[in-house]
Each structure stands twice: as C-alpha cells, then as structure tokens.
C-alpha cells in the first residue's frame, strides 16, 4: 500500500487537470491523434493529465480507443 508508486497513484492530483467535462467534447479528437501516432498530450495537456487520474473518464477513453480501432472503418453503405 505504501510503496511510493502506489501512494502516488492513490493520491494522484496533478496541477493542470482539465476535469471530466472538458474531455467529453474532444475525446474523439484525442483518440484520433493517438491512432495517427501523434501525442494527444501536446494538443490536450489538461485532458491527458485527467485521463491518468479519473477512473470513469479513463474507462471511456479506453473504450473509445478500442472501438475506433476495431470499427473505425465502417462505411455508410
């Protein structure tokens, strides 16, 4: 419990955290940058910080990343 890494995770509260709402609008753009091999943290630093700390947004991000990878090429017909 008290090793340094675990304690850092338990108490993670980094300055610059954009919060949950800020990430909702841009989560698709954030994921697209990742899929393109770019660093989304340089465009959306506050959301990158947030996704390391918020379990709910982290799960949504992981889900969208996987969905875009698996089903991103679907066409309208």
């Amino acid at each position: 419990m008290t090793d340094r890494r675990h304690l850092d995770d338990l108490l993670r509260a980094a300055e610059g955290d954009a919060g949950c709402n800020a990430g909702e609008d841009i989560l698709d753009a954030y994921v697209e940058l990742e899929l393109a091999g770019e660093d989304p943290a340089s465009t959306y630093p506050g959301t990158a910080i947030h996704l390391r700390s918020c379990p709910g947004c982290k799960a949504d991000h992981e889900g969208l990343l996987e969905a875009a990878r698996r089903f991103g090429d679907e066409k309208p017909g």
Binding site: L27, D28, A29, L35, G63, L64, A67, A68, G72, D73
Partner: peptide, 18 residues
C-alpha cells in the same frame, strides 16, 4: 471533423454504455 465521423459517433455510444 476533428476526428473521423465514426470515432465521433462512437463516443456517444461509449458514454451511453458507461
């Protein structure tokens, strides 16, 4: 157009599932 349309659309269903 900041992402593909599909990525943008899937965001809505991921949030609904969540």
């Amino acid at each position: 157009g900041l992402s593909r349309f599909t990525t943008w659309a899937y965001k809505f269903v991921i949030f609904e599932v969540s």
